[in-house]
Nucleic acid binder design. Sequence first.
DNA 1: TGAGTATGTGAGTATATAATCACATAGTTA
DNA 2: TAACTATGTGATTATATACTCACATACTCA
Lengths: 109, 109
Amino acid sequence: MITEEKQLLFERQAEIAKALSHPVRIAVVNFLKDGEQCVCDIAEYVGAERSNVSRHLAVMVNAGLLSYRKQGLKVIYELRCPCILEFFVCIGGVLKQQVEADRRLLRAL
Amino acid sequence: MITEEKQLLFERQAEIAKALSHPVRIAVVNFLKDGEQCVCDIAEYVGAERSNVSRHLAVMVNAGLLSYRKQGLKVIYELRCPCILEFFVCIGGVLKQQVEADRRLLRAL
DNA sequence: TGAGTATGTGAGTATATAATCACATAGTTA
DNA sequence: TAACTATGTGATTATATACTCACATACTCA
């Protein structure tokens, strides 16, 4: 049985995973890992419409992944917690294991 | 600029995150971390319809998170890569940091 | 063989998400 | 003040996702 607290935790964890479940948002994290950036530059890096990027950023702020500050005309976003980068290490483990499996499959052909 | 390879990587990473972006699927990982289980028991643990759980499991298999084997009437699922559990450590870091921020906010009231 | 059990799937519906365009807002600078 | 720039948002549309119910499949065991 899942306790009510566990249920809440699962929902919160799922929300964070969802905030990372889009290629554009993954790209954003990758771009911001080296330091804060304005929307303009983020949009150029990820190669998407500014308004679209704006919405993706809002999703990530809502999930608690990003914070932002205004500086003149610009709005500058940064990773709220560098620990999110461990996510890529974790996912990397899964991907490596998949590639290994594919390789074994290939050899069996 | 994002290279074509990076783009592919981001898509793959997003896909894995998406497979973890639902409370039921998070619950499944939590249940399976102590060992393989059949659909029946998984459904009871997560508290959802069997057919619904079946679909969630299919999503996770597709993403490469789970593997399964048939044993008589039952189909038994297990984590394909325990490294996925690091995901919770990572997410835990983000959540802790959010709770800290909330606490600071509360003190400021 | 026939009843029973575990699982998966088709079809339908409701809801959520993503993308785009046009426009609003806010700050800048001449 | 007026033109300009960076950003966010409303409205719309297309697509994806989640869920449910009924049913098909596959295996078990009497």
